[in-house]
Amino acid sequence: MVFGMLDGVFFKLGPIPVDHIIFTEWVIIGLIGLIAFFATRDMQMVPRGLQNAFEAIIVFTYDFFTQLMDKEHVAKKWAPLLTTFFLFIILSNYSGLLPGAAGLAGFQPPTSNWNITLTLALITFCSVHVAGFAEHSVGYLGHFVSPSPLMLPLNLVEEIAHPLSLTVRLFGNIFGEEMVIAFLLFMVPFLIPGALMALSLLLGAIQAIVFTLLSASYIAAAAGESH
């Protein structure tokens, strides 16, 4: 165990070891699914309670992504994925804030492991190109040789750099924040780490928003005009 980073393997699923990061991820996915199930179980024309809250979230995100992406049908198509990114990342970031979570298997933020953030970034990478091909079909390939064929290597490097920077940004922020809190807990066990945890409440939300916004703007750039 290094600075609260455990390597606990809970059980093996065939040849695949299931460690605490994956377990936490499953719990978060289950939580989101359960809340969504209860919100949509008994839908009514005039929404009340949980259904009302979910409808507010959906309307807000649809309007937000429509404004950001200019094309309404593209926004409608990709808003569910982007909203799920946001919910999953914000719950993952906050799962490390429970008291004593840094040293406890099962409560470390899954986003503080770069395997998880790389997976999320690769989903974005694939959806960017799917969105580009769905919108422009073969004409999308022209985007790689614009403004001139000389720019082809630079454009390819840019395509690799996007998921890489998404990965390192989310992982570095959450991992660094967890490390600083673990160091402070080691030196001063009371009060002082609380201030930093309050700050990381804000940071976790901002990182979730930034990941979602950047994914949305990459998809909008691929599906937009002017290729």
């Binding site: 390192v168 992982f171 570095g172 991992f175 901002i206 928003i209 703007s217």
Partner: peptide, 20 residues
């Protein structure tokens, strides 16, 4: 501003990851 700050912050985070 938030998007720009995220881009700038990434460069600092690269340094932090190398430090770790």
């Amino acid at each position: 501003l938030f998007i720009t700050l995220a881009f700038i912050e990434t460069l600092t985070i690269y340094g932090l990851v190398i430090a770790f």
